[in-house]
Design a protein around this nucleic acid. Structure first.
Lengths: 234, 234
DNA sequence: CCGACGCATTTTGCATACAAAGATACGGTG
DNA sequence: CACCGTATCTTTGTATGCAAAATGCGTCGG
């Protein structure tokens, strides 16, 4: 029977996958401070699995740039250098306008509904002062925009970028006040409105303005922080 | 003594790193056909190491999208679907103009020299009919442009993108004739000329035209190929 | 009191071992 | 001869074991 593909009982590494998600979630929730080393065995014990799948997950997270070895001993959440910070926002401002433009042209009703949901979620988090949840909802919004655009590679790129900048924000010890969160979310709503009106130019304009605003707000964080050397893997 | 950082005898995973590079090189050289499964133990034996670091490297390559499990059994080089193919080139046409623009403004003498080297290398490969080497040199050129621009995240993104499209080309069994390679390299030279003249607009125009040309040339490959389902990890 | 040396501890990196899940081969049966 | 069931074989996913390296600490000497 040709129309039924073989069940595809994906025997993918379940523990590795679970560890990857769990660690990433913990990182993005800010549960690891910049001075808190991530110890393989501790993670393994917490998840009740062995070190092997944990190691594989950590290797991936390292490759993604969320973690980095320090002094050759111990993995830590990676803090951004000033240059990286600038680069990430420049990248956003290159990519996001394209995504939101096409999203404005192509998003269907259900996608728009999901975006609205994400913004509602963000609002609730803003009310309750849940910064990690707020940032997560914001990433979801941008991811949904990317999905509406339909470009998987760029969507992944943007998502990873925002994970890293949000992570930086979390681990900097900065706390976003509810009014700031509400303001940021209001900008998101305006972008969604432009998408609803099928106005790509306005949507692109708004998304650039949004990114620039965030950049300005965050730049203060670097006032007193010296640029630390970047050890990228090419 | 502050100006000397501690020796940083990086005890990073040497074997994992070596395996990652070796496998990636082999993949991008086209030494694994689309029907050739990559067996952990074979790789381990070839590299004279154990399966553990090999597995970690493979996990990363999988995450990067160069490999994918098939039927839940065995890793294979990932072939692009039509949609992915379109997305990658769309992404290139969004990102590359920015990179080359800034490269035209910022590239210093030594960076330009490196670009020239890459193009010379590509030319030699074109002469000798070494398609993998030609593609690699082409990627190097684009990577150097990205480095001249100075945006690490975008440079990484572009490099990975081109790895995947080049890989698709290799594994499609298509062979680029020397004249095609020369023509493509000529376009690269024109881009480099524009960078040399510090003409960002022209450079951006050329790079878009270049990408579109490649896309057209490659589109033929999809004529008879049905879109296969994409199982991305979000 | 400060510094240096050495030991113990921690934690990683790699190897090996083992079990389970498909796949393959093969033989039996209708 | 085709088809189904079984047994074997391959290959992965996970656990465990072990050695090396770096860190921290304690102790000793100046």
């Amino acid at each position: 029977m040709q129309q039924l593909r073989p069940l595809n009982v994906r025997r993918v590494p379940r523990f590795r996958e679970a560890a990857y998600r769990a660690i990433k979630e913990a990182i993005l929730d800010g549960r690891f401070g910049p001075a808190h080393p991530i110890i393989e065995e501790d993670v393994a014990e917490a998840l009740q699995i062995s070190r092997t799948p944990v190691r594989e997950a950590l290797a991936i997270l390292q490759h993604e740039g969320l973690l980095a070895p320090r002094n050759g001993r111990g993995l830590y959440v990676r803090t951004l250098t000033r240059d990286e910070f600038v680069s990430m926002f420049a990248a956003n401002e290159v990519v996001e306008p394209y995504l939101v433009r096409r999203a404005a042209l192509r998003a269907d009703e259900s996608q728009i509904e999901e975006m609205r949901d994400a913004l509602d979620r963000a609002e609730r988090c803003a009310e309750s002062g849940d910064m990690a949840g707020f940032l997560r909802a914001g990433r979801d919004f941008h991811r949904l925009v990317g999905q509406a655009c339909g470009n998987t590679p760029l969507t992944r790129f943007i998502t990873q970028n925002e994970e890293r900048t949000d992570l930086y924000l979390m681990s900097s010890g900065q706390t976003l006040g509810p009014e700031r969160m509400r303001a940021s979310n209001e900008e998101h709503r305006e972008i969604l409105d432009a998408i609803l009106r099928r106005d790509p130019d306005e949507a692109a304009r708004l998304v650039i303005a949004h990114s620039q605003l965030i950049r300005r707000r965050l730049s203060e964080l670097f006032e007193d922080r010296p640029a630390t050397p970047e050890d990228e893997r090419p």
